[in-house]
C-alpha cells in the first residue's frame, strides 16, 4: 500500500492505494476560497495546503484503516504545478517518510492523470493516445508504457479548463467555470451561436483557446442570444476543438485506443463527443472515472506503483518543480 499526497494546485489531497485498488481518497477543495478571485491565488492556495495537509493525510489513513507502519512507500507530486503549493506536500511527505522509515516516490502530476485510467475494475493499459484536459493542461500524450509518455500536442495559450473559467467569467458565472458552463449549457442550443473551431486550419497537434474567449466576448456584445444558448454554443466550440485535434492525433499515431483524463474529462458533452469519435473511427475510448478526473492523490499513488521508491537520505534531494520535466515534453511536428 502507498500513501500519496498531492498539493500541486488548489486541492489538498491524500489517498491510500494498492495497485488499482483505492482504499481511501480524500480531496479538500479550495474552490470556494479562490472563487472570489476568479482563479487560483498561489499564496492563498499554499497557506491553505499547510492548514489542511496533515488532517487530510490523517483522514486518508483513517478512512483506509491503515497505519503508517503498514505502508510500502509514500508518494508525492513533485511537479509541475505551483511551486509554493507543491513544497507543502513535498515537505510533509518527506517528514512522514522520515518518521515512519519509509521510502519516498516523487510523482509527476501529468503521469498521475494518465495513471487515473488504471483506477478501474478494467484498467486501461498502454499503449494508447491520451487526451489530458484540465485547468492547467491541455495535452495529447503518446503513452507507450506505464510510466512512459511523450507530449505530441499541447495548448499554445490557455488550457481547456481555463477557457471554461474565462468563458464563465464573461457569462457572469462563478469559478470554477467548467461545471458552471456545463450546467447552464444543459438547457441551451449548442448550434444557436456559431463559433470558429480553434486551430482548424493550422497544421500540427497543438491547441489554442485564447481566440474562442475573444469570440465569446464579441458575440456577447453583438448577439442577443439566451445565456443558456450562448453557454451551450461556447462549450460546443471548446469540445469541437478538442475532438478535432484528438482525431488528427489518432490519425498521425495510428493509435487504436484513446484515454481521456483531467478535470475537463468529467464534462459530459466532451465524453459523449469523444465516444462518438471512437465509434466513427473504430477506436476504443476510455475516460477516467469522474471521481478521478479532477486532481486527486489516488492517481498519484497509481502512478507511483510504476516508479522506483527512493530511500532516506537520498529522498532529501527530491524538490518541487513548476514546469513539466524535460524529456517528458517533446513536440512532434506533424
Amino acid at each position: 500500500m502507498i500513501l500519496a499526497i498531492e498539493t500541486s494546485c488548489d486541492e489538498t489531497c491524500a489517498a491510500v492505494v494498492d495497485g488499482s485498488t483505492v482504499y481511501s481518497n480524500v480531496v479538500s477543495s479550495q474552490a470556494l476560497l479562490h472563487g472570489r478571485f476568479g482563479g487560483v491565488v498561489p499564496e492563498i492556495a499554499s497557506r491553505r495546503h499547510l492548514e489542511l495537509v496533515s488532517s487530510v493525510v490523517r483522514a486518508a489513513l483513517d478512512d483506509a484503516s491503515v497505519r503508517l507502519a503498514d505502508l510500502r512507500a509514500i508518494a508525492v507530486t513533485a511537479g509541475p504545478g505551483l511551486v509554493g503549493a507543491l513544497l507543502v506536500g513535498v515537505a510533509a511527505a518527506k517528514a512522514y517518510a522520515y518518521a515512519a522509515a519509509k521510502p519516498l516516490v516523487a510523482v509527476d502530476h501529468l503521469h498521475g492523470h494518465v495513471a487515473s485510467l488504471s483506477l478501474d475494475e478494467e484498467p486501461f493499459e498502454p499503449p494508447f493516445l491520451c487526451l489530458l484536459v484540465s485547468g492547467g493542461h491541455t495535452l495529447l500524450l503518446d503513452v507507450t508504457g506505464p510510466s512512459r509518455f511523450t507530449v505530441i500536442g499541447r495548448s499554445l495559450d490557455d488550457a481547456a479548463g481555463e477557457a471554461f473559467d474565462k468563458g464563465a467569467r464573461l457569462l457572469g458565472l462563478p469559478y470554477p467555470g467548467g461545471p458552471a458552463i456545463e450546467q447552464l449549457a444543459a438547457d441551451g442550443d449548442p448550434g444557436c451561436v456559431p463559433f470558429p473551431v480553434a486551430m482548424a486550419g493550422r497544421r500540427g497537434l497543438d491547441f489554442s483557446f485564447a481566440g474562442l474567449k475573444t469570440a465569446l466576448a464579441t458575440r456577447l456584445r453583438d448577439q442577443a442570444a439566451a445565456p443558456a444558448d450562448m453557454a451551450a454554443s461556447y462549450q460546443a466550440a471548446v469540445v469541437a476543438s478538442l475532438v478535432l485535434r484528438t482525431e488528427q492525433a489518432l490519425e498521425a499515431t495510428g493509435a487504436r485506443r484513446l484515454g481521456v483524463v483531467g478535470g475537463v474529462a468529467a464534462n459530459a458533452s466532451l465524453r459523449a463527443a469523444l465516444n462518438r469519435l471512437g465509434e466513427r473511427r473504430g477506436v476504443a475510448v476510455k475516460a477516467a472515472l469522474p471521481r478521478y478526473c479532477g486532481d486527486n492523490a489516488a492517481m498519484i499513488g497509481a502512478a507511483a506503483a510504476h516508479l522506483v521508491p527512493v530511500e532516506f537520505p537520498d529522498f532529501l534531494q527530491i524538490d518541487a518543480y513548476a514546469r513539466a520535466a524535460l524529456g517528458v515534453e517533446s513536440s512532434v511536428g506533424w
Binding site: 499554499s46 497557506r47 495546503h49 499547510l50 495537509v53 496533515s54 493525510v57 490523517r58 503508517l68 509554493g84 513544497l87 507543502v88 506536500g89 515537505a91 510533509a92 511527505a93 518527506k94 517528514a95 512522514y96 522520515y98 518518521a99 515512519a100
Partner: peptide
C-alpha cells in the same frame, strides 16, 4: 515558503 516548509515538516513529524 520557508515558514511553510518548516511547519509542514514539523506538523508531519509530530503527526507521524
Amino acid at each position: 515558503t520557508g515558514i511553510r516548509i518548516g511547519m509542514a515538516t514539523a506538523t508531519a513529524l509530530a503527526d507521524a
